[in-house]
């Protein structure tokens, strides 16, 4: 296994969130996890940097358990962008992005010339060059999300893990952010693992999808297999009409009604 989770179980107190989940994230692919709120998607991602400690199982990277790597070693190769961000109000975009170089910095040394070049190219890659000196608090939601994403990209990870990178953004920014992610995957071969709420967007931008339900993996496969009436009704309890986007070769759906509302009819 290149990267993934092996037999991971997560419990909060007595409440079991995930049980014996094994998930394989192939190298160089964009993998998206979908599922209802509280199904354990984010918790699973949080086990990578131990914000959530699994009661059994482990995270695996290049065939070895992640705990065998040192913390800096991991952070040079795997980046994780949480859903909620904290930043000092006056920090500017360039400074924020530059923190992505921290795992690569030597003790007591500042940014090297090479680091600065990487920061500049990352700013350009994410389309932030023009606002590099603006403070993060003055940016719009989409720009801010791109700035944080740029910090993670600046880490030059082999695996990038994103917890709902499009939350609170309008559709234009959602697509913009996902395009940056896709471009990163295409150009640099970065393996992407993310949680998304919008299934149509997930299908459009992923190579592979996992659907979580009831503490385990309910289904997994390519987007064309995953966007099906059966899976949508099993996992999200909705009836949906499945349509096909011939241009992108990817299915999409229109929600019709919730299963519960059908019962009451």
């Amino acid at each position: 296994m290149y990267f993934g989770f092996e037999d991971v179980s997560i419990r909060y107190g007595r409440n079991t969130v995930l049980e014996h989940v094994t998930m394989d994230i192939p190298r160089g692919k964009v993998v998206t996890i979908i599922g209802k709120n509280g199904c354990g998607k984010s918790s699973l991602l949080k086990t990578v940097y131990r914000a959530v400690k699994p009661c059994s199982g482990q995270v695996v990277f290049e065939g070895k358990p992640l705990c065998e790597y040192g913390p800096r070693q991991i952070s040079r190769r795997i980046a994780y962008l949480p859903q909620v961000h904290f930043s000092p109000p006056d920090i500017n975009v360039r400074t924020l992005v530059s923190y992505g170089r921290y795992p690569h910095m030597r003790f007591g040394k500042g940014l090297s010339e090479q680091d600065r070049q990487i920061i500049d190219s990352t700013l350009e890659f994410t389309g932030l060059s023009d606002m590099a000196e603006r403070s993060v608090s003055t940016l719009s939601g989409g720009e801010r999300q791109r700035a944080w994403l740029a910090m993670s990209i600046c880490q030059q990870p082999e695996v990038l893990i994103l917890d709902e990178p499009t939350t609170y953004l309008d559709i234009s920014y959602q697509v913009e952010v996902l395009e940056v992610i896709r471009r990163l995957n295409k150009r640099r071969g970065t393996t992407i693992l993310m949680v998304l709420h919008d299934i149509n967007l997930a299908a459009r931008f992923s190579d592979f999808m996992y659907a979580l339900k009831g503490g385990g993996i309910h289904a997994c496969g390519e987007p064309s297999q995953m966007v099906s009436a059966q899976i949508l009704s099993d996992v999200f309890e909705i009836n949906a009409r499945i349509l096909d986007d011939a241009d992108n070769g990817c299915p999409f759906f229109i929600p019709l009604n919730h299963l519960k509302s059908e019962d009451t009819k």
């Binding site: 940097y49 913390p71 795997i78 980046a79 994780y80 949480p82 904290f86």
Partner: peptide, 23 residues
């Protein structure tokens, strides 16, 4: 004198700081 960068990283929140390799 050795703390500023680490402090700055810590201010980004625990999850981000961990992801950047700060314990």
């Amino acid at each position: 004198a050795f703390l500023p960068t680490k402090m700055n990283i810590l201010m980004l929140g625990d999850e981000t700081a961990n992801s950047l390799g700060l314990r």
